[in-house]
Design a protein around this nucleic acid. Structure first.
Length: 214
DNA sequence: TGCCAGGCCGGGT
DNA sequence: ACCCGGCATGGC
């Protein structure tokens, strides 16, 4: 399995080049982006992020002090805006109650312990927690998303009913523990999923993974 | 026009 | 332990 996973990575890397992800300039921006993109296209998230940036709200303190009504209005373009405003507040509450509002302190915590803590926050599930750990914290945690599952499924690398932990283990037990590698790998999956492995369009020859060894 | 997008929660079986 | 409805905007 290690061999095929590395084959896929090299193939995608050769096709798309280095991704240099995540589109976010600061840790807090990445974290907010991870929440806002839940079941939502990134283009909508960008509008919401732009609103927050324009109002100078992309800081831990500003997000603590803003009223939830105004917050939800600003993130409206990202959809589910009432839910997501609560989720952002829940994360900020956690950050202040546990780490005195310091992301640096938060990221000093052992990776797996922090993951458990993040998962206890209402509104943060496995993908969001792992995105925070990988992209904001640069931890070697593999992020599984809808693209990942669809691509694996389409190439018969996982079963239809495979769950999050199973798919995550597939990568983490068969690849070197390397945050940069996991970062690039996931980013390449997103790129592929958007461009040539869309849901509406079944497997085609133009897919770089159309032919695989073994 | 209807369908879909980088999930997650809560209530019901 | 699963299953399902709800949440909501913008792009094609």
């Amino acid at each position: 399995m290690t061999k095929i996973l590395l084959y896929i990575f090299n193939k995608l890397r050769a096709m798309f080049g280095p991704m240099g992800w995540w589109p976010g300039e600061t840790q807090i921006e990445i974290i907010i982006g991870a929440i806002l993109t839940q079941n939502t296209s990134w283009s909508n998230v960008e509008k919401a992020i732009a609103n927050l940036k324009r109002e100078d709200l992309l800081s831990v303190k500003a997000l603590r002090d803003i009223g939830i009504e105004r917050l939800s209005e600003l993130i409206r373009p990202s959809g589910y805006y009432n839910q997501k405003a609560k989720k952002i507040k829940h994360f900020i509450d956690f950050l202040f109650s546990t780490y005195d509002g310091s992301l640096n302190k938060m990221f000093e915590t052992d990776t797996l312990l922090l993951r458990e803590d993040l998962l206890r926050i209402n509104g943060i599930g496995p993908e969001t927690a792992d995105s925070i750990l990988l992209y904001a914290g640069e931890r070697a945690i593999f992020v599984v998303d809808a693209y990942t599952k669809r691509i694996l499924e389409r190439h018969n690398l996982c079963s239809q009913d495979a769950g999050y932990p199973e798919i995550q283990a597939l990568f983490m037990e068969n690849l070197p523990e390397d945050a940069k590698l996991f970062n690039e790998y996931h980013a390449l999956f997103v790129r592929l999923g958007k461009e040539t492995c869309k849901k509406s369009q079944p497997l085609c020859k133009s897919c770089p993974l159309y032919k695989m060894p073994g």
